[in-house]
């Protein structure tokens, strides 16, 4: 399998006044990979994602996208936020068409169809449930055909059932397009369920970079699933057991 590096982070740092949030992140993301970033709340997951999206400048280090250094907005990436951020004054179709030009209607409808909401095209976002709003937000990101999809806890505010449904949708879309995806989540099981690799952020560093080797579709009942989840969770909580572990800690 020939692999191409899509995104490389070299010693990326970020601090807010006296608070050092990212202390030198080194990561490489391959084309077509599904990567999850997990970590405690406030550990800098969103900050890292916003830096990758080019919405915020790093305080140090380099971000290489497709081999060239990222200077401003990452045009090849699209980000989806936890709170959806649909424009309440635009109808759903217009929300999806945001930032598109030319023959955008057909594309937007197609994207809306891919998340199963084409019949809501001409309604306002206020008429949608939380899960539907996130599906529209997902369609809005997909319609730009990005090379890199950034998901910042997109399912964090959803109820358990809707969450499962959305996880399946995200996995199906990823399998169909082989779109490099970085998912930020605080739900370890969600990360293990969906990702090729799980990255744990801790104290501003990458604490763990764990490849998940399990066939898809993954089953929660699979003992490997439990093992991965428990190990990663232990790492995040700092209660990692002394006995043998499958984890490979990257310490610099």
């Amino acid at each position: 399998m020939d692999q191409k590096e899509l995104l490389v982070l070299k010693d990326v740092k970020k601090s807010y006044s006296s608070l050092s949030v990212l202390k030198g992140i080194n990561l490489t993301f391959q084309q077509g990979e599904f990567i999850s970033i997990v970590g405690k709340s406030g550990c800098g997951k969103s900050t890292l994602l916003r830096i990758i999206a080019g919405l915020e400048a790093a305080g140090g280090g380099r971000i290489m996208m497709n081999g060239s250094e990222l200077q401003s907005l990452n045009e090849a990436a699209r980000i989806m936020f936890q709170d959806g951020r649909l424009l309440p004054w635009k109808k759903i179709l217009q929300n999806i068409g945001l930032g598109l030009s030319g023959d955008w209607r057909e594309k937007a409808l197609e994207a809306l169809r891919s998340v199963g909401l084409e019949d809501r095209a001409h309604q306002y976002p206020s008429s949608l449930s939380g899960g539907q709003k996130q599906r529209v937000a997902l369609a809005r990101a997909l319609v730009h055909e990005p090379q890199l999809l950034l998901l910042d806890e997109p399912l964090g505010a959803l109820d358990a059932l809707t969450r499962l449904e959305m996880q399946r949708l995200i996995e199906a879309i990823w399998q169909k397009n082989r779109l490099t995806t970085i998912l930020v989540t605080h739900d370890v099981e969600e990360a293990v369920m969906l990702s090729d690799r799980v990255i744990v952020l801790k104290d501003g560093n990458v604490a763990v970079d764990q490849v998940i080797e399990m066939p898809r579709p993954r089953q929660r009942a699979n003992p490997a699933f439990t093992k991965y989840s428990e190990e990663i969770l232990a790492e995040i909580m700092g209660t990692r057991s002394a006995r043998g572990t499958v984890l490979v800690a990257l310490s610099h």
Partner: peptide, 29 residues
């Protein structure tokens, strides 16, 4: 106007006048 919406607009390629007409003005209306 919700900072999150402005950031979202920027992330989707809006800037200057288009950011104003699609996000800022309707948000302030």
């Amino acid at each position: 106007v919700d900072r999150g919406l402005i950031e979202m607009g920027q992330a989707y390629g809006l800037k200057g006048f288009s950011l104003f007409t699609h996000v800022i003005f309707p948000g302030a209306l």
